[in-house]
Amino acid sequence: MKSVIVKARPLRCEIIDVPIPEPGPDEVLIKVIYCASNPRDWKAPDHLVPGVEINQGNEMSGVIEIVGSNVYEFRKGDRVAAAHPMQTENGTYAEYSTAPVNTCFLLPPNISFEEACTIPFALCTAAIGFYQRLKIPFPTSPESSRVQTPLIIYGGSSSIGAFTLKLAKMGRFEKIIVVCGSGRPYIESFGVITDFVDYRDCNVVHDLKAALGGKRCFHAVDAIMDGNSFGHLSEVLAPEGARIAVYLPRLDYSCIPASISVAITFFGTVHGQATPISNEVFEEDVDFAYAFFRLVGRWIAEGKMSGHPYEVLPRGLLSVEDGLRMLKEGKVSAKKLIYRVADTPTLEPEYFF
């Protein structure tokens, strides 16, 4: 089968032929219909894990081909979306990919493969930060009916930011304040945001304080990590007991006062991987993901959850390099870049779905 290897310095991709992988006991083998790009896919070989050249894809939708020996809830032919473990073989930029069942969910009939492809990696990452790190009450908890203090999301139109907003819509907050720019029209449509702060006005701290209106804020999500974002947030959060969810473990957060908890969120913990640098293992995240992904399918069917806006790039897997370059150059806003594997010119005719 065809598989895309992502290389760096300069950024480039190579399509190679590899054997179709075998799923592990707790995995499924998926015939990939659509795969999606995330910023980490170019950052990993460039500077996060330099020198490692593998298939960096982590997000997909498709049809189950084989189930592992311990798998009892999925069957061959099921329509699914799934997240593949980071920095492991058999990534999603390929004709077939594997995924653990705890990050795989059945697609209800009201969602397309295209939209479903935008969900698994980003939504799960947002959920870990929101529920597991910030300790926001989960929708099934009796505490979820209690009004929470204001929530600030920096980078609301990013995929993690937008999915955090969709999760926040299931809770209750005094205020939901979003820092964003050109992506405002998209997230404004959610009908949950009380205040907007435009970072392009260069008055983020002042405008955040004005939006808070004297209320204390204990919860913030930095979904953009632009170098100034978490510093700005630390200036407006309550001086004691506040938490910031951040998503890049390798950044220097020393500018954040020690009284504010830096809740480092790393997607790999749902697959038992340790957080880089701090080497923390959050075993509870594995079961959290299992339960969460079962609810995701139901939420989609009920209209409580939806995917992210997307653009399908032409030429299937041949366009992965173009997509990663667009992400690296900052040319993507408020949408996900996805690829229809069957559009790859070099595939054999029998692949087409």
Rank of each mutant, 00 (worst) to 15 (best):
E350H: 12
G68Q: 09
I16R: 11
W299F: 11
F352W: 09
L208I: 07
F190R: 01
Y72W: 08
C104W: 01
A342C: 02
F130W: 06
A289Q: 07
Q132C: 09
Y310H: 07
V296S: 01
Y247H: 15
V192N: 04
C217H: 04
E143D: 14
Y247F: 15
C13M: 01
S61C: 06
V6N: 08
K328D: 12
A258T: 12
I264F: 01
I16C: 07
L337I: 08
V4Y: 03
I153A: 03
P314H: 05
N110P: 05
G241R: 02
I136P: 02
I160W: 00
R200D: 02
Y93N: 06
H47V: 09
D17E: 14
Q132V: 07
S158Q: 08
C124V: 15
I256S: 02
P150K: 00
R216K: 13
A122C: 10
L151A: 06
Q87P: 00
V80W: 01
H219R: 13
E22N: 14
F163S: 06
R216P: 00
T269Y: 11
R325Y: 11
M1C: 09
E59Y: 03
G227W: 06
K335H: 04
S259T: 15
V18R: 10
A44T: 13
S319I: 03
A94R: 04
P108I: 05
L313M: 11
W42M: 05
R250D: 13
F288P: 04
D46S: 14
S3M: 04
I177R: 02
E174M: 05
F267E: 08
F121L: 15
V296A: 03
F353K: 00
V296C: 07
F138L: 12
E59V: 09
I30P: 04
H219L: 13
I187G: 07
R250C: 08
Q87N: 14
L295T: 08
E53V: 09
P21H: 11
V63S: 03
I256F: 04
E14M: 05
Q56W: 03
I187C: 09
C124T: 15
C124D: 10
K335E: 00
G77W: 03
E53S: 11
R298V: 13
H206V: 12
V49E: 08
L318T: 11
G231T: 10
E235M: 13
P108G: 05
Q273F: 13
V67T: 13
A263P: 04
D322P: 00
